[in-house]
Simulated scan of single mutants.
Amino acid sequence: MAYTGEVKDSGPQTRELSRLTVTKVSVGPMDNNAYLLRCTSTGEQVLIDAANDAATLLALVGPSGLARVATTHQHGDHWQALAEVVAATSARTTAGADDVAGIPVPTDEPLVDGASVPVGDCTLEAIHLVGHTPGSIAYLYEDPDGIAHVFTGDSLFPGGVGNTRGNKANFESLIGDVSRKLFDRLPDSTWVYPGHGNDTTLGAERPSLPAWRARGW
């Protein structure tokens, strides 16, 4: 099956990059996206958001094991399966330093802006986006042989930034961080993998930034 990023009804889909494979699956009653990244040269794997359905996630991981679980933020629907996945795999855990207190599974590697998360011979960069939660992290993979890929959790979706629950200061922080750290830095071709729903690109969303600012959410 060709990768479309629409996995709610299709089951897992895998995208093969030159040095990394990305498998996306929807889990749990809130249709959270989880992403299994595998380095093609070493076989090392990292899971972004052990959101729910531990059995589904562990079946994706398979016998190759799991080096890390990288959590995007502290909201409970993004870590319901974290304890079970860690217990089964002995994976290390990463999350934004400012969200660690809200995640009941200990975080082995608290992340700050610009921190590196290895996936075998590949590297993810932690991008701290404040607003949806204090410590939300987007994980950026800049493919040396292709486009950039960013896993945004609940900070950026098709159609807007994440929910800031009517808090003006949090919205201004989030739209500012997303604008500066993603849209101002990365090209239109950058592929966006959100915490729920379908994928998008920065190019598809960029024209809407003024409208998002004007509506305030």
Rank of each mutant, 00 (worst) to 15 (best):
I48D: 02
R185G: 00
H78I: 06
W217Q: 07
V161R: 02
S64D: 12
G153H: 05
H75I: 13
R206D: 07
S173A: 13
C122P: 06
A81S: 08
H75C: 04
L129F: 03
G166P: 06
S208L: 13
E44Q: 14
D143P: 13
L202I: 07
G120Q: 12
D53I: 03
G166D: 08
T56H: 07
D113V: 03
N163S: 12
D199P: 03
I127K: 01
V46Q: 09
V105Q: 13
N198K: 13
Y139M: 04
P110I: 01
S26R: 08
V119H: 07
I147E: 14
T4Y: 11
D199T: 14
P210F: 02
V161D: 00
T107L: 13
G216K: 01
K181L: 14
D98K: 07
D184G: 00
P158G: 09
A50K: 02
L209C: 05
G135S: 08
L36R: 10
L47W: 08
V192I: 14
P207G: 10
G153N: 06
T89S: 11
E6Y: 11
F171G: 10
V192Q: 04
D49Y: 01
C39T: 05
P63F: 02
R15L: 15
N163L: 09
A148W: 09
S116K: 11
L156I: 09
H132M: 11
A59R: 15
P63V: 05
H73F: 08
V86Q: 06
L140S: 05
V25C: 11
D145I: 02
F183P: 04
G166S: 04
L47S: 11
L57A: 08
E172Y: 10
L47N: 10
E172K: 14
D143G: 13
D49M: 01
D145S: 15
L209R: 00
L66R: 04
V61F: 07
G114F: 02
